[in-house]
């Protein structure tokens, strides 16, 4: 309950800061992910399968030109969100399954653990976005009037996705029925973000006067607020 009390964590030394601990956890996760490639494979395969299914059944000419900016934004975000939900819970569930949860609790401060896992999830989301978004644009022939704004929407949307799901992942790792629970718990929290991101992508692609910058700001605010609240609440669920 008192994360600032000194001398409680084994590896906590004078020189270790929140950030250095977080980065250590982040790199450790990346290394173990690089060995097994479990999370990244499942997320990417899920995304590619959905993308192929969407692209095959709709193709690049089925939808009217005027409808495209909106409908393509909806499809893109559905693919991104649900493939993210299929794999992001791994970051904490794998600790639980490997039995390393308690060691992690002892070896770093809670906020540092949260930040490390958040960085890891954001890395996963970055990889997902870098592969899926260009593939989607090419396969579907998605014409985007403001690429800069569209890219910013992808980045802030991804940030929000990571920010809104990391705390939920930490909770469901300690609960029963983990797989289905993660989507069920995350989706209501993500709904405002998804609505914003779809609207922002549509506006960036359509290219109306204000483009999608207000939506980019809303998504960024969502990410900042979710990260702040999660940092405050995380010690409560971590110290149990």
């Amino acid at each position: 309950m008192h994360p600032t009390k000194s001398g409680r964590w084994i590896t906590q030394t004078v020189s270790s800061t929140y950030l250095s601990e977080a980065v250590a956890i982040w790199f450790r996760d990346l290394r173990s992910e690089f060995r097994t490639r479990y999370a990244v494979n499942s997320i990417l395969m899920f995304a590619l399968t959905t993308l192929v299914a969407v692209s095959f059944s709709i193709g690049s000419f089925r939808i009217e030109e005027s409808e495209r900016p909106f409908l393509y934004a909806v499809l893109l975000w559905i693919i991104l969100v649900f493939s993210a939900l299929s794999g992001l819970s791994r970051s904490f569930v794998k600790e639980q399954e490997a039995g390393t949860m308690d060691i992690l609790k002892l070896s770093a401060r809670p906020q540092a653990v949260f930040l490390g896992k958040l960085f890891f999830n954001l890395t996963m989301l970055g990889a997902l976005g870098l592969i899926i978004v260009p593939a989607f644009i090419l396969l579907m022939g998605y014409k985007i009037k403001f690429p800069g704004c569209f890219a910013a929407m992808m980045v802030t949307g991804g940030l929000g996705l990571g920010a809104g799901t990391t705390l939920v992942a930490a909770m469901i790792a300690q609960a029963d029925a983990r797989g289905a629970l993660f989507s069920a718990l995350s989706f209501p929290l993500l709904l405002p973000l998804i609505i914003t991101a779809i609207k922002g992508s549509e506006r960036a692609a359509y290219g109306i006067s204000a483009a999608g910058w207000p939506e980019v700001k809303i998504a960024a605010a969502y990410a900042v607020i979710m990260i702040t609240v999660s940092l405050l609440l995380f010690p409560l669920i971590w110290e149990e």
Binding site: V168, L189, L191, P192, Y222, I225, M226, V229, L233, L236
Partner: peptide
Amino acid sequence: GVYSILAFCT
């Protein structure tokens, strides 16, 4: 409790 606070923030 944590979930309901998190949800309230959205």
